[in-house]
Design a binder for these strands. Structure first.
Length: 412
DNA sequence: TCTGGGGTCCTAGGACCC
DNA sequence: TCTGGGGTCCTAGGACCC
């Protein structure tokens, strides 16, 4: 008889066990499966094409080195050996090249990562099917209904949870040859933090009682949702650790960060989070964007920009059609030299899907931007998505056409 | 040697409607 | 010649995440 079935426990709410599973250095680890001789070496994944390994006549492979890279790429992932040299995700490859010139550079191969992503998720689903996708290399899993998870093992009241976690890790390893780290706690917020406490190949189970000793000493930045801006602002208030955030007066946090975010900061610091594991969600928007090798000028590089713009619209249209969506809101994104970013969008009366119509609407948006500065990025986005054959959108009040800039009329 | 590409959610002002 | 209140949609920007 499980504890849940005992009449005396009928009033007690069943304990939630939520896991966060994070694949260890995922892209890099997939590459090591293909190039095992690189194990233990500093390896960096990133950039665009051009630097794939070449196999020589004697069968040995020749790899690109970080020092040879020129361009605007960033580090997507690095092996633990590369991280030891200070090379982390999102760092510019040129900058990384200064820190680790001899590190091996491999191009990203998303098809391969997606393949292993499907494999590991399927392996988890065989044991625990309530899974929330959080991207290519991580998931949340609701273990609450997994058989045996609430059972103690020997003198360990958490033995059942640990056993299920080990089963999941073994299953992932068998299916992919890759390791992962798992955090298990009563909610998503804590599990996300916990999965990071013992990387790589980690397993951390925490209950509410562990919050003061295991969570509070950590920097606030470890909370998913506190980014660089919020952390910097908290620091000016003398708050660096989660303990200090937990001790801060909620009224003060609300005054400084607003009603919603301030209240959430307080709850998060106390480890409170009731969000469910969401097994299905529909996309809100679909987009395509590209950063140019060199900054382009709307007038000077008009033809090239026009071709890139058309191509982005075609790729976006293909994505929409492949995924089975139409959209009513077409938007553009521009990033200028100096990194200033601007967006414009326009909501149409009826949803569209084809490249020409997207190009037409996006072109209208483009005319509303001052294009005297050079551009480093151009993007096209579709939102207000619907399925073909779905009931038409509610009677749309279409905003008056936004004002185009006269000086742009001839450009797009 | 700066800073990819794909997303989500929130805020805030103005339009517009009842 | 002065002036409501609430609700929803649209748009732009920004923080944040993987």
């Amino acid at each position: 008889m499980t504890e849940l079935e005992r009449p005396s426990d009928a009033a007690a709410p069943p304990r939630r066990w939520i896991a966060h599973l994070d694949m260890d250095a995922f892209y890099a680890s997939v590459e090591l499966l293909r190039y095992p001789e690189l194990k233990g070496q500093p390896v960096v994944i990133g950039g665009r094409r051009m630097h794939a390994p070449r196999t020589l006549e004697d069968g040995s492979r020749q790899y690109a080195r970080l020092r040879d890279y020129t361009g605007r790429g960033v580090v997507t992932t690095s092996t633990y050996a590369a991280r030891a040299l200070g090379v982390y995700s999102a760092m510019g490859l040129m900058k990384a090249g200064l820190l680790a010139p001899d590190a091996i550079l491999l191009p990203t191969d998303f098809d391969s990562y997606r393949h292993y992503s499907r494999l590991f998720k399927a392996a988890v689903a065989e044991i625990a099917p309530v899974i929330e996708d959080r991207g290519i290399d991580e998931i949340y899993i609701d273990l609450s209904a997994v058989p045996g998870v609430h059972e103690p093992v020997g003198h360990d009241p958490l033995g059942g949870v640990r056993a299920v976690a080990r089963e999941i890790k073994n299953s992932v390893s068998r299916a992919t040859g890759l390791s992962c780290s798992i955090g298990i706690t009563p909610n998503k917020l804590l599990s996300k933090i916990a999965s990071d406490l013992d990387k790589p190949d980690g397993l951390t189970v925490l209950t509410e009682e562990d919050i003061p000793t295991r969570i509070w000493p950590l920097p606030v930045r470890r909370i998913n949702g506190i980014g660089p801006k919020a952390a910097a602002k908290l620091e000016t208030l003398g708050i660096q650790t989660i303990a200090e955030l937990a001790a801060a007066a909620p009224a003060m946090l609300i005054e400084r960060f607003g009603r919603s975010y301030g209240a959430w900061l307080h709850e998060a610091a106390h480890g409170r989070d009731e969000r469910p594991v969401v097994t299905h969600s529909e996309p809100v928007s679909i987009s395509r964007e590209t950063t140019f090798e060199r900054d382009l000028h709307a007038r000077h590089d008009r033809e090239l920009l026009g071709r890139i713009f058309t191509e982005l619209c075609e790729q976006l249209a293909a994505d929409l059609q492949r995924k089975g969506y139409l959209g009513r809101t077409v938007g553009i994104k521009l990033r200028f030299e100096g990194f200033r970013t601007v967006t414009r969008d326009q909501t149409l009366a009826l949803p569209i899907q084809d490249a020409a119509a997207i190009r037409q609407a996006a072109g209208q948006c483009l005319k509303r931007v001052d294009l005297s500065q050079r551009l480093r990025l151009l993007g096209v986005r579709m939102a207000s998505l619907s399925r073909p054959g779905e009931a038409p959108p509610p009677p749309a009040r279409i905003a008056r056409p936004a004002q185009a800039r006269l000086e742009n009329l001839s450009l797009f």
